[in-house]
Nucleic acid binder design. Structure first.
Lengths: 137, 137
DNA sequence: CTTGACCCTGTACCATGGTACGGGGTTTAT
DNA sequence: ATAAACCCCGTACCATGGTACAGGGTCAAG
């Protein structure tokens, strides 16, 4: 298979395949005499693994590590589970941060009737004043 | 006030002040003969506004717009409120995405006893297999 | 044969929000 | 005077995950 075929089957950009190769996420395949890469079907599966793991919030670096774990002979499943659970914790933290932002914004928005000039907008005024921030903490 | 004093009082890096000036977020101040920037106290407040807005999830670009709105004579408070509410919507969407990720990860993690070699890890296997993904959608 | 699609490489670019230099001038306190 | 802190500018770099070229070679179908 050529790089274009792999990209098409894995539903990614050709450039992405080359990028992943450069980053070490997929191995450099053998070449034809022309220099064209010659892939087996395993690369499609590997790229799909990468994209699925990305969807779950893993960075490419973390994915590279997962891929290494997959073939490490002395590593146990528990390490994979630990990483999944660590990612869950990460995500929970992010959700908390976002919730705080949302609540602060909602409080601000509720102070504004939506009428009047911006020079007297309570939202903008709150962003300008330090007391407002301290009062929340 | 010098740039160092502004940075210290606003609790940001000197480089950040210069960056904000380059990005148009704060105005270029008058200079001494030496070339040193000479700030009034208003810049400290403005930088604090920027940082507070950032904490609420606004990008610098969005913040620049808020700062423009603040002094626009024909703009009403409702525009500011609209933007705050749009940001809330953004954040809610991000939370939903993160929730989905978390749930998918939790499901995966629950399939793994934490025992056994990684070559037989249900988490990794799920990431490898397309059927698993389709079954969820 | 011809042409269009495909492939290669290396380098640069994008977004975002900074941060770090190098090289040189200025200010301030001792 | 001296030394350290401070400031200036322009340019490059960082992280992350791509994406886009330019310039040139190869392949496959008509």
């Amino acid at each position: 298979m050529t790089i274009g075929q792999v990209a098409k089957r894995a539903e990614v950009n050709i450039e992405t395949i080359r990028y992943y190769e450069r980053q070490g996420l997929i191995p450099s395949p053998p070449r034809r005499e022309s220099g064209y890469r010659q892939y087996s079907g395993g690369t499609v599966e590997r790229v799909r693994f990468i994209k699925r793991a990305q969807e779950l919030g893993f960075s490419l670096k973390e994915i590279a590590e997962l891929l290494s774990l997959r073939v490490a002979p002395d590593i146990s499943c528990s390490e994979v589970k630990r990483r999944a659970e660590a990612k869950i914790t990460d995500i929970e933290e992010k959700i908390r941060t976002l919730q705080k932002m949302k609540e602060a914004l909602a409080r601000l928005a509720s102070t504004c009737s939506g009428r009047g000039p911006t020079s007297e907008c309570p939202i903008l005024e709150a962003l300008e004043n330090e007391e407002e921030k301290d009062a929340k903490e």
